[in-house]
Amino acid sequence: MSTSPRKSRSSGRVTLDDVALSAGVSRITASRALRGERSVGADLVTRVTLAANALGYVPDPAARALASARSHTVVVLVPLLSNNLFVDLLEAVHRVLHPLGYQILIGVTHYQPHEEEELLASYLAHRPAGLLVTGFDRTPRCQALI
């Protein structure tokens, strides 16, 4: 089992293909093993996990969301972080969503509708599973994005 990564991407990141090659399995088997699917035998899961750890593989949530058409990201846009109301809101959202496997992307709008629009447009590229926004003052484009 080879443990030297190819780093075939221009970013230098270790890819799922690198893990599969190192573990001696197909890409789909490596993916299924890392996701914990029951259809993959324990011995293969161990081989793939060891290869991933040895190579320093970090799954790409954007690639996973694209491949599965599902995301585990929820966007939360708040006006300020200096107001305890919004900090409490973020804590509550995290407390509920984190145990369910969701990550939160937080954006601060500073009560500026155009800043909210820019953040929303940027965060929607991550294909979030959910969106939580506060307030009512939105640009027409932001309303359309929502």
Rank of each mutant, 00 (worst) to 15 (best):
R9L: 13
R13M: 07
L16D: 01
D18W: 05
V19D: 00
V19L: 03
V19T: 08
A20D: 01
A20M: 06
A20R: 05
A23T: 06
S26C: 05
T29C: 06
L34T: 04
G41T: 15
A42L: 15
V45H: 08
L50T: 15
A52I: 13
N53K: 14
A54Y: 01
L55S: 07
P59L: 11
P61C: 03
P61M: 06
L66F: 13
L66V: 09
S68R: 04
A69Y: 05
R70F: 01
H72V: 07
V75M: 06
L77F: 00
V78F: 00
P79E: 04
P79F: 00
N83Q: 12
F86D: 05
F86T: 08
V87Q: 02
V87H: 01
L89R: 08
L89W: 03
V93C: 14
L97Y: 07
P99Q: 09
G101Y: 11
G101F: 08
I104M: 13
I104G: 11
I104A: 11
I106D: 05
G107I: 09
G107T: 10
T109V: 06
H110D: 15
Y111I: 14
P113K: 01
P113T: 01
E115M: 11
L119P: 03
L119K: 05
A121Q: 04
L124V: 07
A125L: 13
R127S: 14
D137W: 04
C142E: 03
L145Y: 06
